[in-house]
């Protein structure tokens, strides 16, 4: 299984240059106060991971991987673990970058605020991952792009529609007693979300034919 994780990380390595350039560009923009880096970089890591699916598809890697010992299981497992590792690494880099930017701009470091915004972006990243990967495994990366696009817009539309009928402030107030446990709750949700997504992808891939 380690081989499968390595494969994805080595593929990302060949994109390191691009990633490095983007980090520098975002860092400069962050220093200029143009953007909040904490939201961009982790999200970018998922985009890089999704690009590995394109390379996989181009050379029919999925079919090849099944010829390896326990290939059907390890293909999916490797992809998820590599993605999580990648997300953690990028999150750490972003966190350091955020501290530096915050220090340079304001001469102080606001640990709590930075950590909270990082946590939010990590949650968003894993939400996107959990949602996207099973669709990619089911439809293939090309068709999945369109499906994901449609679903995301459908979701936004639905939320917008619902928000005009639902009193969000009321919900926020009635849930305010959870505030102290928010990080724990969100962490649990993240773990469950990724696990369910992994299980769905594994199931899809176990039946897939090439």
């Amino acid at each position: 299984m380690i081989g499968f994780i390595k494969k994805d990380l080595l593929m990302i390595k060949s994109n390191f240059k691009l990633l490095g350039i983007l980090i520098i560009v975002y860092a400069i923009m962050g220093l200029m106060g143009e953007i909040d880096v904490s939201f961009i970089l982790p999200f970018m890591s998922v985009m890089v991971m999704i690009s590995t699916f394109s390379y996989d598809a181009y050379n029919n890697w999925d079919a090849y991987s099944i010829s390896f010992p326990d290939g059907r299981k390890n293909n999916v497992k490797g992809k998820y673990i590599a993605t999580i590792l990648m997300t953690i690494i990028v999150t750490i880099i972003t966190l350091l970058l955020s501290f530096i930017i915050s220090y340079v701009n304001t001469k102080t470091i606001n640990f709590e605020e930075t950590l909270v915004s990082m946590f939010g972006s990590l949650f968003g990243t894993l939400l996107v991952l959990s949602f996207t990967y099973p669709i990619i495994y089911k439809l293939g990366v090309e068709k999945a792009r369109i499906a994901i696009f449609l679903i995301v817009f459908g979701f936004i539309f639905l939320i917008t529609l619902l928000s005009s009928y639902i009193n969000i402030e009321f919900i926020a107030k009635s849930l305010s007693f959870l505030e102290n446990y928010l990080i724990i709750i969100l962490t649990l949700i993240m773990i469950i979300m990724v696990y369910i997504s992994y299980k769905i992808s594994e199931k899809i891939f176990s039946k897939k034919e090439f």
Partner: peptide, 12 residues
């Protein structure tokens, strides 16, 4: 195994 047009991603 050697299969036709099935291999590692070519950026490796």
């Amino acid at each position: 195994v050697v299969l036709d047009d099935i291999f590692f991603p070519e950026i490796l």
